[in-house]
Nucleic acid binder design. Sequence first.
DNA 1: TTCGTTGTTATACTTATCTTATCACAAATG
DNA 2: CATTTGTGATAAGATAAGTATAACAACGAA
Lengths: 125, 125
Amino acid sequence: MVIEIDFNSDEALYLQLRNQIIMGIATSQYQEGDSLPSVRQLADMVGINMHTVNKAYTVLKQEGFVKVDRRRGAVIAIDVDKLQTIAELKKELRVILAKGSCKNITREEMHELIDEIYEEYGGLE
Amino acid sequence: MVIEIDFNSDEALYLQLRNQIIMGIATSQYQEGDSLPSVRQLADMVGINMHTVNKAYTVLKQEGFVKVDRRRGAVIAIDVDKLQTIAELKKELRVILAKGSCKNITREEMHELIDEIYEEYGGLE
DNA sequence: TTCGTTGTTATACTTATCTTATCACAAATG
DNA sequence: CATTTGTGATAAGATAAGTATAACAACGAA
C-alpha cells in the first residue's frame, strides 16, 4: 500500500500514518493477519524517523487495530468493542455535524456525504 | 451559555472552547449577531488565561464563525462557503467512517448515528 | 474629561508534544 | 553466525500550548 506524508500539513506525522493505515484497513488494502512494514522499513520509505513510525504503531495497537508479534512485526488484528467505538465516533461527529449545521449543511446533505464517501471507498460495508 | 473545560482532556484548551462554541451556535444557544463574552470575562469564568481564549476566538474568526467588532467584541457572524465546508467535512469524515468500518459499524448504523445526534440537538436542520 | 472595558499586540517564560538521533538489547530468522 | 525484528533508554532540537505581565488605541458611560 502506498503511504505518503505531507510535510506541509499541520497534522502530526504519526497521526497521518495512523489515519492512512486505518483507511487502508477499511478499504481492504490491509486485511486481518497482514503484516505492516517494519518500523525501520516504513521510516525509510516515507523519509521520517523510526520512532515516529513506532509511535503510530503504538497508537494503532492501543486503539485495537494491530497486535505486535515479535517475529512478524505489527499485524492487522481488529479488536472490536462496538459500544466504545460508537461512543468515540459520536463525540467526534457532534463537532462535525455542528460545524456543518452552522454552514447550512442540511441533515440530508450530511447523509449524502456519508454515502459519497462509502462509494469512494468502493461499496464498502 | 455554559462553557466548561476539562483539564484532564488531552484536547487543547482553545480547541475545547472552539468546539463548544460551534456546538453552541448549532444549537441556537448563540445566534447570529450575539456577542460572545469578552476574552477576559470568559477566561475568568472557566479559569484559564486570557490569551488562550483569544486564540480560540481567533480560530473561530479564521474559520468564519465570528467577526470581531471593536466595541461589541466577538460577534457571531457565519461566513458560509459551502463548497469549502463540504471539502473539509469530507476529509474528516473519511477517517471517521474508516475507523467505524474497521470496527464493524455498518453504513446503516452510521446513518442512524447521524440521526441520533440530530435528535440530541433537538430536531435541528 | 475621567474611568473602565474592549480587542489587540508584544515580550517572556514554562511546560508539553513532536521529531530526530544514537545506542543498546533480547528474540527470532536465515 | 550475521541480520532483522520490536523495544527501551537517553538526549537533543523544534514546535505548540499555556501562562504572565504590560501596554496601546478605541469606545461607552460617568
